[in-house]
Amino acid sequence: MRETKFDTIFDSQKIFRTLLDAFAHPGKVVKISGLRIGPPSGISKASAGVLFTLLDLEVGFAVSTCDKKQSEKIAEYFIINTGSRLKNLESADFILALGELPELERIKKGSLEYPDEGATIVYAVEEVNEPRPFYLRRDTTCQKGRGLSGIDSVRLTLTGPGINGERHLSLKGLKKQEVIKIMEVNKEFPLGIDFVFTDRKDKCFALPRSTRIVEVKEA
């Protein structure tokens, strides 16, 4: 459980720079690779790496998943490796969400004087992709509904600080309804929640509260 090969100085530094790049360019897909860690089943190395980089005893975290046993195991893994404290959703600074989005209204959004006290959610989904430019893309209408059977997919169009015009993204493992909840919770900027989406292949992107989702389509 105890990760001895995670370099708290240099691995953290690299992951932080990748995250910073992601937050500065919302929707840009980045990769966190090369980590020599073995997180418990259900979470990717990227999710673990992000939290290793940001958690310590001065902040609290929560794990949001329907599987209570899995949740306990994951929580223990982060307590041992970061010294951070387990909290409930209402008071956590960082939330690792697996499988489903937690109830966003329970999570800290900061105050108008101190909006930075809003939480950060690391949400593990199936797959995140930047669509290829339209001129290289095959006819997307044919693919509709054909994707991986049973897995929800959405396409997002983003705009806001960090984005030159618009940015497009496709996600597997996220429902349209969940995207609408995210739009809802971040509509009172500067109050809000910042998101990092991670996928099974250790790809990630950030969705800070300043980003506006202008279009969401089921793909």
Binding site: L57, S84, K87, S91, E117
Partner: peptide
């Protein structure tokens, strides 16, 4: 201890100032 300290910080954050 670091634990009670972190807990306290939590209370401070929650009580917002």
């Amino acid at each position: 201890t670091p634990e009670t300290f972190a807990l306290d910080t939590e209370c401070q954050r929650l009580s917002n100032g």
